[in-house]
Nucleic acid binder design. Structure first.
Lengths: 246, 246
DNA sequence: CTTTACGGTTGACTTGGATCAAGCTTACAC
DNA sequence: GTGTAAGCTTGATCCAAGTCAACCGTAAAG
């Protein structure tokens, strides 16, 4: 038996799973690039890494040298205060970028933790800067991605600063639903990868309040919840809840 | 009398006040550039604009085509919900950039309003992208500025998500103080350009709560307040207040 | 100088969400 | 299988901040 030939074929095909034939390319960094440009980006995205549930992709304080694209899986990012308080700053899914916070000080300023077994592509940042000096489209798209992160953060501030508990949770569910839809999953049915406590931390609420709001939404017929399994039954109802000053 | 000659001299000297001899250059976009590079940036920063207190620099929804550097003055940015709720997303001072949120959708997503008579430099964004494809240092610094904004937003999330009213106000005062210091002003004494209501909106509190927290800080001897005039008397006291889970 | 309006302070009372506590469900280890 | 721990739900109670209201201070307009 010549095992090498088979092995080589497999590993070659694995390596070949670069940006150019990644099915997330329209959601991720390669968006809008030509075939030739894509191949240049492939050269850059050399390191792939698998993470188990609970594993850190990076920790606050460690030197920054790459940003990460999520190939599959689900992450949270959080910031810890000295006294132990945790703020979850975001939940990230396939096609989204992690690590943009590290550019400013050349050190990561938050923790990124896999909430399920995941796979990421590491993109060395200085090489990304070089390439985006040559590829206008890549440069512009990268700027859009950073800007989108700022806009998203403003949305979270709005949520934390002016909304009541049920509005926050409704906004959260609608946002998740919309992002799952963009990835070809059901907009109405999904599993939450995070605990009630993590949702609470993100939304500035305690886990008991999150749990009660879920129960309330179920009583009202907006959703069906069973632990981490969510079915959205009334999108309009959830939206209405957010807009009227209750 | 020949008024023209005098006028021309003045306007020439005003025009010459470009990045290369702006005293904010170390805080602003030109940071780290060589003399020649600075001159290329000067060509780009052509439009200067004065705004009266209360005037909008841009409004949410209008097309984005430039970012703005604050030459002098003070701004707030806010997001309005359909039902009228306002979230102040930031306060910006000299040397800081406005409008980064507009890159992602090519439309501004918040309002920028002058809180005192101010002057800004408009930087056409597509020209900034061109130039930063040629000047590595400019590209890298711009990325750092965007990233810094993301880190700042995470700080605000932490504040809104996990801190109590007095911690939030203490964090806010310490942050202002630090930014004034970086601009060569007293770290201990300054005038607030915003109302209690705007502070409250930023911090996710009502104006009465902000007012009471100011009074409380004064009673404790941490600060002296008289309307918008603030003197910080005990930085350590304010810091301590933030760290101990009270 | 007086009027007026806006912003700020303070008090009394209410309330949404936190806290404390008990019990339940699910999943995994043994 | 059974045990156990982590996560979730629900109830009772409490409290920080919100709401409502009155009044004060300052600054701009007349």
């Amino acid at each position: 038996m010549p095992p090498n030939s088979a092995t080589n074929t497999i590993s070659l095909s694995v390596i070949k799973t670069a940006c150019s034939n990644c099915n997330l390319r329209e959601l991720c960094l390669p968006f809008g690039l030509s075939i030739e440009e894509l191949e240049r980006l492939d050269d850059l995205v050399s390191t792939r890494r698998r993470l188990k549930r609970g594993e850190h992709l990076y920790r606050s304080g460690v030197p920054f040298d790459a940003i990460y694209a999520i190939r599959s899986g689900f992450f949270k990012t959080d910031v810890l205060l000295e006294d132990g308080r945790e703020q979850v700053t975001g939940f990230q899914m396939a096609g989204e970028l992690l690590g943009l916070d590290g550019i400013s000080s050349e050190h990561h300023t938050c923790n990124a933790i896999a909430l399920e077994d995941s796979e990421i592509c590491a993109i060395p940042f200085s090489r990304l800067e070089s390439l985006s000096r040559e590829i206008h489209t890549l440069q512009h798209h990268f700027h859009k991605v950073m800007s989108r992160e700022i806009v998203r953060d403003h949305g979270v501030m709005m949520l934390l600063g002016t909304m009541r508990a049920e509005e926050r949770l409704a906004a959260f569910l609608l946002n998740l639903s919309q992002r799952f839809t963009a990835r070809g999953f059901s907009h109405a049915e999904f599993y939450l990868r995070m605990t009630r406590e993590e949702i609470g931390s993100y939304l500035g609420l305690k886990l008991e309040t999150v749990s009660r709001a879920f129960s309330r939404f179920q009583e009202e017929g907006f959703i069906a919840v069973q632990q981490k399994h969510i079915r959205i039954l009334d999108v309009a109802g959830l939206k209405a809840l957010m807009n009227h000053r209750a």
